[in-house]
Design a protein around this nucleic acid. Structure first.
Length: 477
RNA sequence: GGGGCAGUAGGGUAGCCUGGUCCAUCCUAGAGCGUUUGGGACGCUUUGACGGCAGUUCGAAUCUGCCCUGCCCCA
């Protein structure tokens, strides 16, 4: 792993900035020799580990974790016609075992509905088995033909958290969709990433779903990134896979299902939303190192300062912080740059002056400097870190708000989507959506918008003038 | 899916058209030694590459073919 030095490209050149920060901050190494597959550096994986720990804790409230196989027999995979159509061009097939051709080819899961639901059919017998709510965190494979991008568009999604639920009625399933959206909202609140929820147009929903609610954020270049989806499957799959239960009256009924997922795009969002010209900026909740202690070692007082820094490190570790003492033989400035690139939320400096005054100097990743009393340092740091996290949320919200524009004409829409998201009135027809796309080089991505940054209203469709309601128009990743 | 450009050490470049001590050069890269240390220190020594596979040739970073990988534009 190379030492980072020199300036990062400015964040305004987002694409360049993104590519470079991934290796400079040691998140992903893109040099793996297969297109669309990338390697997690330990630091990047540490971020993933903490983020997915949060996600697992949220899921575990109301779901059980499980693990299904990677390979799906073609016979099961091909059962659900609409679903296949949505994925058939992207599936990797295993056709051989050693030198022998397989009787039934095996698909590398692009998503696991067709692996899980045949088993659900076996597991579910009675209404007392419902609701069933399971999830797994697995890798999935999609033969992407568009340009691949680390963490964003992958041929191997390494961190797909997918949940699959079964309920006794359509209404219960629909209620679960709302529960899932609540969990995802909470997840992204913890990551300090602001999101917009909206309902995808019918032609853009998950193959085989009744409807899809998406969770999007807005990237620094104004394009939206879908960082979560929740699908109402209705009884579509349960009819195909014969997921039935006996109700209280002894009648056989089909189950109603939902599924929802989050991938490492969540990490891409954290990196992109918070990062700045100096590197990564991590919310304390996902930082593998929350605090770095930098001893300012000068000549004769070296041992004294080092002892003080070491004692501070232990005290902070005992208090439950992820803390690292950087005692390397380098100039302090070089260390500051090193940890700033990697997004460490808080740096604590201990030098001879601090030893004398019985203080420490705490500097947040965004440059807020506080001198703390050495006694009661845990309380002081807890408070500094919590304020830092809240400040990140606020800054991210403001940045997002600045990229959202309510517009009334196609000309204004075209202008708005160059740097962000436009909110238009739209009648809901595919015909008008296509006209918008043709006119403004961006698409209708959702209606039924839910965001406290967007005021939803009725109004005349921006294309046909018919009755319309607020919808999002954006360029997307 | 269609078109274009590219791949040389950890990173950045030159050399290619016009094959031949050209295995070059730069860096805030790596290793070692010493002096340093409150915002990217300095000196000396040293390491390391022509994307892969075939072909042409006495000889290939350079020419030919295929493949892989990356970037940009269009759909």
């Amino acid at each position: 792993m190379e030492e980072d030095t020199g300036a990062l490209p400015r964040k305004e050149s987002f694409s360049e900035w993104y590519n470079e920060i991934l290796w400079r901050a040691e998140i992903m190494d893109v040099r793996y020799p297969v297109k669309g597959l990338y390697v997690w550096y330990p630091h990047g994986f540490g971020i993933r580990k903490r983020a997915y720990g949060i996600l697992r804790d949220l899921m575990d409230r109301d779901h059980a974790e499980t693990m299904f196989p990677l390979l799906i027999p073609k016979t099961e995979f091909m059962k659900e016609a609409e679903h296949i159509k949505g994925f058939e061009d992207e599936v990797y097939w295993v056709t051989h075992g050693g030198r022998n051709e397989l009787d039934v080819p095996l698909a590398l899961r692009p998503t696991s509905e067709t692996a899980i639901y045949p088993m659900y059919a076996l597991w579910i017998r009675s209404h007392t088995d419902l609701p069933l709510k399971l999830y797994q965190v697995v890798n999935t494979f999609r033969y992407e033909t568009k340009h691949t991008r680390p963490l964003i568009r992958l041929r191997e999604i390494t961190s797909f958290k997918e949940a699959h639920t079964v309920h006794a009625s359509w209404e219960e399933a629909a209620a679960q969709v709302e529960v899932a959206l609540g969990l995802y909202k909470e997840f992204y609140d913890t990551l300090r990433v602001p999101v917009i929820l909206s309902r995808r147009p019918d032609w853009d929903k998950f193959p085989g779903a009744d409807y899809t609610i998406a969770v999007d954020t807005i990237m620094p270049d104004g394009k939206t990134l879908q960082i979560g989806t929740v699908h109402m499957l209705g009884d579509h799959f349960s009819r195909t896979y014969a997921i039935t239960y006996e109700d209280a009256n002894g009648e056989q009924q089909y189950g109603y299902q939902t599924c929802y997922g989050i991938s490492e795009r969540s990490i891409a969002a954290v990196v992109s939303v918070h990062g700045d010209d100096k590197g990564l900026v991590l919310p304390p909740a996902v930082a593998p190192i929350e605090i770095v202690v930098v001893p300012i070692i000068v000549g004769k007082r070296r041992d004294e300062v080092l002892a003080s820094a070491t004692a501070l490190e232990s005290e902070l570790r005992d208090a439950g912080f992820a803390v690292k003492l950087d005692a390397r033989d380098m100039r302090p400035g070089a260390k500051y740059y090193h940890w700033e690139m990697r997004g460490v939320p808080l740096r604590v400096e201990v030098g001879p002056r601090d030893v004398d005054a019985n203080t420490v100097v705490a500097v947040t990743r965004t440059g807020k400097k506080t001198t703390l009393d050495r006694r009661g340092v845990v309380e002081g740091i807890t408070s500094v870190l919590s304020t830092f996290g809240e400040d990140l949320s606020q800054a991210a919200r403001q940045a997002m708000a600045a990229r959202i524009t309510a517009v009334a004409t196609l000309e204004e829409t075209a202008e708005a989507v160059k740097s962000g998201v436009a909110v238009v009135h739209w009648c809901g027809s595919q015909e008008c959506a296509e006209k918008i796309e043709a006119a403004v080089d961006a698409s209708i991505i959702g209606s039924d918008i839910r965001s406290d940054l967007i005021a939803v209203s009725d109004g005349p469709c921006v294309v046909c003038g018919g009755e319309g309601r607020s919808a999002l128009v954006a360029r997307t990743y």
